[in-house]
Design a protein around this nucleic acid. Structure first.
Lengths: 214, 214
DNA sequence: GTAACATTGTTAAATTTGTAACAATGATAT
DNA sequence: ATATCATTGTTACAAATTTAACAATGTTAC
């Protein structure tokens, strides 16, 4: 690895992922160079922030010509991706789980959802957008067999802590928990949690606030 | 309104929403008092942060007895909720849209999803978990008719900017955008964006990082 | 009744994140 | 050839958020 010895800020990582996605679209449209203010506009942020992020990853643009789109995509890839990619599983094949699988499939080459898990016998051994669904009882076995390192939890909230525990035992290194129930994991496991209800209540709060202010 | 004249920090709002959800569970189990460190443990945060949040909303606990669960729930309600509630619509009745509707229905009394929209004729005029799906062409009409103030966007990414624009014109006050495409809205409209791919790539980055460190 | 203690509420420090300011630079116009 | 200009890269500043420190206080144990 070249220069990313010091950890990049969380928020920069998030933005890099987003930059890349849109840069790929730009590239597919034949755009070869892009200015910081163009990237900024796409993402509703300031050009300064874009330049700062790119500075942090050590990318240099050309004065008056902007950044080379292809180079930038490659560099972000070297930061975000692993050489051989990582395998992901989804635990809980409800609407949300299926939505994630469908959303993802074929989009990002270096991350791939390779397995699903559910307790419902109607779902077990069926395929969802090309992903095979196993019974949760086989969690440990399949994760180890296939070398899966990342798991997404989309089961009913009550079951989340239990699932998380099993995932950690199975050797999972990163968890994305979409249930409203926070889970505990060993410190070496990276945990990211997101809860849609919270987001909606937050929006509601600010709508209420703006209304009061008028 | 009593004391929330000064805006509360974003993150505090998010946590309040989560506290309340778990406090309701505690209450239903008959627990009447709770300590800051108990709340903290549920949410994987520090007791200090909990106390600080509660300080900000002006709640007082009883020394050595903790916080009165019911009082706290009520106070958070006074901050987050509006008296008559707010109406929400979901634009895009795919897996994610349906997941949100199912997830939400009946859970929070003060926010209710009252309408869905889609372009697919197979979905139009059907019900999803009790929510009627209209054709997107009727967006403006229905939003105004029913007094909907909040919208969740779960359409394919390319269509997000266009949908957002229509929503703003229809008078929506808050938008929750779940597509990877960032949208522009007038400054008086509160916008929250979340992208699942970004979260997953972020988890992958930190998994990679932890691995390298070893 | 007194001392020890657990727990709260608050102020201060540290960290993280975003914004502004501006020098450096090379292309473009005249 | 020179001046102007747009744009980058970087440093310094500001705002938001988290963490630490600790005084205040009422409860419990003795």
């Amino acid at each position: 690895m070249i220069a990313n010895l010091k950890a990049l800020p969380d928020k920069t990582i998030e933005r890099l992922s987003q930059y890349r996605r849109n840069l790929l679209i730009c590239l597919s449209k034949g755009k070869q160079h892009i200015f910081s203010h163009e990237i900024a506009q796409i993402h509703n942020i300031t050009p300064v922030q874009v330049r700062r992020d790119l500075m942090l990853i050590g990318h240099s643009g050309t004065l008056r010509k902007g950044y080379d789109v292809k180079e930038l995509i490659d560099l972000i890839g070297r930061i975000l991706d692993t050489k051989d990619g990582l395998k992901v599983c989804v635990v809980g094949i409800g609407n949300l789980g299926r939505s994630l699988i469908g959303y993802f499939n074929g989009r990002r080459s270096k991350l791939s959802i390779v397995a699903g898990f559910d307790v419902n016998p109607d779902k077990v051994d069926k395929n969802y957008a090309g992903v095979h669904c196993h019974h949760v009882d086989r969690l440990n076995e399949i994760i180890k067999r296939d070398g899966i390192t990342i798991a997404i939890i989309t089961v009913p909230a009550e079951q989340a802590p239990d699932v998380a525990e099993k995932l950690v035992i199975a050797g999972i290194k990163g968890i994305l928990n979409y249930t409203p129930k926070s889970v505990n994991v060993a410190p070496h496991v990276y945990l990211e949690e997101y809860d849609m209800i919270t987001s909606l209540e937050k929006v509601a709060y600010f709508v209420k606030r703006n209304g009061n202010a008028e």
